[in-house]
Amino acid sequence: MISRPGELYQITREPIEVQGISRKLLRAADGAVCVFEGVVRDHSKGKRTLYLEYEGYETMALKKLEEIGLFVRGAWEIGTVAIVHRLGRMDIGETSVAVIVTSSHRRPAFDACHYAIDKLKKVVPIWKKEFFEDGEVWIEGQ
């Protein structure tokens, strides 16, 4: 975990407490909190998903989360940022990843949050395996 005033980057195996993190980040000067949560859905390509397992190259993944956070802090007028990814087994409806951005006004928070999750999906070395009734498969990018 990397934690500094106004920043949090973490790879965890525990449930992500989004509400607690966002309340802790929030500064008096902030008028907006933008939260993106990626959650486990119950289907993939027409098949029913039972649960997922996430695996990561943890040390590199943490570095990449920090790089993304530092970038968005430089690129937008935001107050604080937290990027947290969970690994291990997760059931339907559980949060696997959260990006939380606070700012004085809403627009930079939306934009930074959107950029951060898109970038995360491209560069952070984490993979998911979907488990179905009749098998399992790694979901890998292109």
Binding site: Y57, M60, K121, V123, K128, E140, G141, Q142
Partner: peptide, 25 residues
């Protein structure tokens, strides 16, 4: 822990990670 392309040289003691594209979505 830094992305490199295939022409990158390797040194004694390096940690080299090899993996498929990340999960994207």
């Amino acid at each position: 822990e830094e992305y490199v392309d295939k022409s990158a040289s390797i040194s004694e003691g390096d940690e080299i990670a090899i993996f498929p594209p990340v999960s994207g979505g």
